[in-house]
Amino acid sequence: MTEYKLVVVGAGGVGKSALTIQLIQNHFVDEYDPTIEDSYRKQVVIDGETCLLDILDTAGQEEYSAMRDQYMRTGEGFLCVFAINNTKSFEDIHHYREQIKRVKDSEDVPMVLVGNKCDLPSRTVDTKQAQDLARSYGIPFIETSAKTRQGVDDAFYTLVREIRKHKEKMSKDGKKKKKKSKTKCVIM
Rank of each mutant, 00 (worst) to 15 (best):
T2L: 09
T2R: 13
T2Q: 14
T2V: 10
T2D: 14
T2M: 11
T2G: 15
T2H: 12
T2I: 10
T2E: 15
E3M: 10
E3Y: 11
E3C: 11
E3G: 14
E3H: 14
E3P: 15
E3F: 07
Y4V: 12
Y4L: 13
K5P: 08
K5E: 08
L6D: 01
L6N: 01
L6P: 06
L6G: 03
L6E: 00
L6R: 02
L6Q: 03
L6A: 06
L6S: 04
V7Y: 07
V7A: 11
V7P: 03
V7E: 06
V8F: 04
V8L: 09
V8D: 01
V8M: 06
V8R: 01
V8G: 04
V8E: 02
V8S: 05
V8A: 06
V9T: 06
V9G: 06
V9Q: 04
V9L: 13
G10M: 02
G10S: 04
G10W: 01
G10A: 07
G10N: 00
G10P: 03
G10C: 05
G10Y: 00
G10Q: 02
G10H: 00
G10T: 01
A11F: 14
A11C: 13
A11L: 13
A11M: 13
A11W: 09
A11H: 08
G12F: 08
G12M: 11
G12V: 08
G12Q: 12
G12T: 10
G12P: 12
G13W: 10
G13A: 13
G13M: 12
G13N: 14
G13D: 14
G13L: 10
V14S: 12
V14F: 10
V14G: 11
V14T: 12
V14W: 03
V14N: 11
G15H: 00
G15S: 01
G15Q: 00
G15Y: 00
G15V: 01
G15R: 01
G15P: 02
K16Y: 03
K16V: 02
K16E: 05
K16A: 05
K16G: 06
K16Q: 03
K16D: 02
S17Q: 00
S17E: 00
S17I: 03
S17P: 00
S17T: 05
A18S: 10
A18E: 04
A18H: 04
A18C: 12
A18N: 15
A18P: 02
A18K: 04
L19H: 10
L19M: 11
L19P: 01
L19T: 14
L19E: 13
T20R: 02
T20S: 10
T20I: 07
T20E: 04
T20C: 06
I21E: 05
I21P: 00
I21V: 10
I21L: 10
I21S: 07
I21H: 08
Q22T: 11
Q22M: 06
Q22C: 06
Q22N: 12
Q22I: 04
Q22L: 04
L23Y: 12
L23R: 14
L23P: 02
L23G: 12
L23K: 14
L23T: 14
I24W: 11
I24R: 10
I24Y: 15
Q25F: 13
Q25R: 07
Q25Y: 09
Q25V: 15
Q25S: 15
Q25N: 15
Q25D: 15
N26G: 13
N26M: 09
N26A: 14
N26R: 10
N26S: 14
N26V: 05
N26D: 13
N26L: 07
N26F: 06
N26Y: 09
H27Q: 15
H27R: 06
H27T: 15
H27F: 15
H27D: 15
H27C: 15
H27L: 15
H27N: 15
F28T: 04
F28K: 00
F28D: 01
F28P: 03
F28A: 03
F28C: 05
F28M: 06
F28R: 03
F28V: 04
V29T: 06
V29S: 06
V29E: 07
V29W: 13
V29A: 07
D30G: 09
D30R: 09
D30P: 09
D30M: 08
D30W: 07
D30A: 09
E31V: 07
E31N: 06
E31C: 08
E31D: 12
E31H: 06
E31S: 06
Y32T: 01
Y32G: 01
Y32Q: 04
Y32E: 05
Y32A: 04
Y32R: 03
Y32K: 00
D33C: 02
D33G: 02
D33Q: 04
D33K: 01
D33L: 02
D33F: 03
P34Y: 04
P34W: 00
P34A: 07
P34C: 04
P34H: 02
P34T: 04
P34F: 03
P34D: 03
T35S: 03
T35D: 00
T35G: 02
T35W: 02
I36R: 01
I36W: 01
I36Q: 05
I36L: 04
E37W: 10
E37M: 15
E37I: 13
E37T: 09
D38M: 00
D38I: 01
D38S: 04
D38G: 04
D38Q: 01
D38W: 00
S39F: 05
S39T: 11
S39W: 05
S39D: 06
Y40T: 00
Y40H: 02
Y40A: 02
Y40C: 00
Y40P: 01
Y40D: 02
Y40G: 02
Y40M: 01
Y40Q: 00
R41H: 08
R41M: 11
R41T: 08
R41P: 01
R41E: 09
R41L: 09
K42Y: 09
K42S: 10
K42D: 07
Q43T: 12
Q43G: 12
Q43S: 11
Q43W: 06
Q43N: 12
Q43Y: 07
Q43R: 13
Q43M: 08
V44G: 12
V44Q: 13
V44E: 11
V44I: 12
V45S: 13
V45W: 08
V45P: 12
V45Q: 14
V45C: 12
V45H: 12
V45Y: 09
V45A: 14
I46W: 08
I46A: 13
I46H: 10
I46P: 09
I46N: 12
I46S: 11
I46Q: 09
I46R: 10
D47I: 04
D47F: 06
D47M: 07
D47R: 09
D47Y: 06
D47T: 08
G48T: 10
G48S: 10
G48K: 11
G48M: 07
G48R: 10
G48Q: 11
G48L: 06
E49Q: 12
E49R: 11
E49M: 09
E49C: 09
E49T: 13
T50W: 07
T50P: 14
T50I: 10
T50L: 09
T50M: 10
T50R: 13
T50D: 12
T50H: 09
T50E: 11
C51S: 11
C51E: 09
C51M: 13
C51L: 12
C51I: 15
L52I: 14
L52N: 14
L52R: 15
L52E: 15
L52V: 15
L52F: 13
L53V: 13
L53G: 09
L53D: 02
L53Q: 07
L53P: 06
L53Y: 08
L53M: 10
L53S: 12
L53W: 08
L53R: 03
D54A: 11
D54I: 07
D54Y: 10
D54G: 11
D54V: 07
D54R: 14
I55E: 03
I55C: 10
I55D: 02
I55A: 08
I55V: 12
L56K: 14
L56Q: 07
L56W: 08
L56P: 01
D57I: 01
D57M: 02
D57V: 02
D57C: 00
D57G: 02
D57S: 02
T58N: 03
T58M: 01
T58E: 09
T58P: 03
T58S: 11
T58Q: 02
T58V: 05
T58C: 06
T58H: 00
T58D: 00
A59M: 02
A59V: 02
A59I: 03
A59F: 01
A59K: 01
A59Y: 02
A59L: 01
A59G: 13
G60Y: 01
G60Q: 03
G60L: 02
Q61F: 06
Q61N: 14
Q61C: 12
Q61M: 11
Q61T: 13
E62R: 06
E62F: 06
E62Y: 06
E62C: 07
E62V: 07
E63Q: 08
E63R: 05
E63M: 06
E63F: 03
E63S: 06
E63I: 04
E63W: 03
Y64Q: 05
Y64K: 04
Y64F: 08
Y64G: 05
Y64I: 04
Y64C: 05
Y64H: 05
